[in-house]
């Protein structure tokens, strides 16, 4: 648990660094993410290779989907509930800032607050996912279902609900796959998510292109 707590503090610190670095006009937001992640990743590798690395760091990197305890599940569920609640509260602001950042202030939104809150929520989400999938595979379950839902279209709120449902479906399917195919659990979940994304993407492009060109 202290490891998770340390991880949470680290991730929140990184999120703030990204938000602040991204505000400097000469550094784009993507660049800011790149810089912060590379720096921290390097730092993490240095720490992991040192003699004094705490046991369990390996688990943080690769996760242990089948090893989560009842307590882990309760903590994760509580955090997930908080994230959903915060998203519901922030929804109107998120919508306005995402739609047109430059006029969002004139409409009564607070873009910096939205940035910080969103990065904070992503940080909490990553911390939840890291326990099960580890630092490296967590990206798949955070980004994948959202990307699939975006391909399916609709309104923002429906997309968010669809993404959550898709994530649950992929997690279950991944677990079955790992059971029958005898593969690593976390990697199977990630593989199912990525596979589904590719399928939906293919389907969407076939549907969009006129007959005869597909």
């Amino acid at each position: 648990m202290p490891l998770l707590l340390g991880g949470a503090v680290g991730v929140l610190g990184a999120a703030t660094a990204v938000a602040l670095a991204g505000r400097a006009p000469e550094i784009g937001r993507d660049t800011a993410v790149g810089i912060v992640i590379t720096t921290l990743f390097g730092l993490g590798v240095l720490l992991a290779l040192s003699q004094a690395a705490p046991p369990g760091l390996g688990q943080l990197l690769f996760g242990d989907l089948l090893g989560v305890s009842r307590k882990d599940v309760i903590v994760s569920a509580t955090l997930a509930g908080l994230v959903v609640g915060a998203l519901a509260l922030l929804h109107r602001q998120l919508l306005v800032v995402g739609f047109d950042r430059s006029t969002s202030r004139a409409l009564g939104a607070h873009p910096l607050l939205v940035d910080l809150a969103l990065l904070g929520l992503v940080a909490v989400t990553v911390v939840i996912g890291v326990q099960a999938l580890g630092n490296l595979l967590v990206i798949a379950i955070v980004i994948g279902p959202a990307a699939i839902a975006a391909l399916l279209g609709g309104r923002l709120a429906t997309m968010m609900a669809a993404a959550a449902a898709i994530a649950i479906g992929c997690a279950l399917a991944g677990l079955y796959l790992s059971y029958y195919a005898n593969t690593a659990a976390g990697a199977s979940v990630a593989a199912v998510t990525v596979g589904l994304y590719l399928l939906v993407r293919l389907g969407a492009s076939i549907r969009r292109s006129p007959p005869g060109l597909a």
Partner: peptide, 30 residues
């Protein structure tokens, strides 16, 4: 306020009604 060129993203998942409702942010607490 109606901004000049709309700098809004066209791939953003909102309906016309959603956009009109964004105007409530200046009156109804967020």
């Amino acid at each position: 306020y109606v901004p000049q060129t709309e700098r809004s993203r066209l791939d953003y998942p909102v309906t016309a009604l959603d956009v009109a409702l964004m105007g409530t942010l200046s009156r109804v607490p967020w």
